[in-house]
């Protein structure tokens, strides 16, 4: 085994055997996922699909007898309010009829349910057309601009970016401090290993842990109970998570460089990551926040990571669209990494 692989192995084993590290990097964020994604989204869910009908829609009323079994049709005269309800995820779609055209506005947040509703409505239109020739009824479906995603869709990327940030920061700071205080760093300095293989091993292990976190998160969130729908370009989250890991490792190395004990390092890491997670929209959407806060949030790398993960994992944006965010996150990493080198100490004295 080379120095790189054996050090990686030593660190990985140490991590797997550390129950609290496992808890805080895997289970703890998953608990939040259950809380935000499972329980909150479960509220107000009925077995029937709720839709809202704006104004008169004779087509729906004609077949209302059968439709009532699958759709819970609310009625409203206010088109704007109805669209808002779709945005908020209270109803799956808003339906209106203009002449012979049925217009369906749906949210992309929950693709399964909006797809089901569209399917049902297409059938309604088809049946109506079957009665009389020529076919006169049409249906247009239009996506409501989705600035509010369904809870799990929003929660997963946010909590994932938080979990990755926490895992990388804590892992790097704890390793640095304990290795320095226990004089393992000094021992390594007296062995013919390059600094590159020590740092490389730590980076490798952090990235591996982040990948494990990502895999577990995506698998759990995709369970039917949570119902996460990943968009086509979700794989772009992998380079994003790696970039985030590097940046937050650098933050951890700064914390570890300043702290004198493992406890202090954990405290400093928490002090940095937790407020950042709140202010970066990892827990709650920033859209509702005051505009000054939205502006302030730009100084946090987590905000950009979170934004980019949302875009590629659930908003369905292309891989190239998040390159600016990727660059910003790596830029943060570079600057913080330079600071980390400044505050690095081999020895406790």
């Amino acid at each position: 085994m080379t120095a790189f692989t054996s050090l990686s192995r030593a660190m990985l084993l140490g991590w797997f055997r550390d129950k609290s590290a496992l808890f805080f990097s895997i289970l703890f964020p998953l608990m939040f996922l259950v809380l935000f994604g499972g329980i909150f989204s479960g509220m107000g869910t009925t077995s029937k699909l709720a839709v809202i009908q704006v104004g008169p829609a004779p087509l729906l009323e004609q077949s209302a007898a059968g439709l009532g079994d699958v759709l819970d049709i609310q009625k409203s005269q206010d088109a704007a309010a109805a669209r808002q309800k779709v945005k908020d995820g209270d109803v799956v779609a808003a339906i209106s009829q203009q002449g012979d055209a049925l217009q369906v506005s749906y949210s992309a947040a929950d693709q399964v349910r909006s797809g089901t509703v569209q399917g049902i409505l297409r059938q309604v239109v088809a049946q109506a057309n079957a009665v009389g020739v020529p076919q006169k009824f049409t249906m247009t479906a239009q996506q409501v601009e989705d600035d509010s995603l369904k809870a799990i869709q929003y929660t997963t990327p946010g909590l994932l970016s938080w979990a990755v940030a926490m895992g990388a920061t804590f892992g790097a700071s704890a390793t640095l401090v304990t290795w320095r205080e226990k004089r393992i760093l000094r021992r390594l300095r007296l062995a013919p290993v390059s600094l590159g293989s020590v740092v490389g091993a730590r980076i490798g292990v952090s990235v591996a842990i982040a990948m494990i976190q990502t895999a577990i998160f995506l698998v759990v969130a995709s369970l039917p109970f949570f119902g996460l729908q990943l968009s086509a370009y979700w794989w772009m989250s992998i380079p994003l998570v790696i970039a985030g890991t590097l940046t937050f490792m650098a933050i951890g190395l700064v914390a570890g460089g300043l702290a004198k004990s493992a406890e202090a390092a954990a405290g400093i890491s928490n002090l940095i990551v937790l407020p950042m997670a709140f202010l970066s929209g990892a827990f709650i959407p920033l859209e509702a926040a005051p505009s000054w806060l939205q502006a302030v949030s730009n100084v946090f790398p987590l905000k950009h990571l979170n934004q980019a993960l949302l875009d590629v994992m659930v908003r369905g944006q292309g891989p190239l669209s998040v390159l600016p965010e990727l660059g910003i996150v790596l830029g943060f990493g570079l600057v913080i990494g330079l600071i980390a080198m400044k505050v690095f100490r081999w020895d406790s004295v």
Binding site: D18, K182, R183, I184, R186, L190
Partner: peptide
């Protein structure tokens, strides 16, 4: 060869 102090070991190995 340099001896470590008795506590200078990799954690949990």
């Amino acid at each position: 060869g340099v001896q470590l102090q008795a506590t200078s070991f990799f954690e949990r190995l």
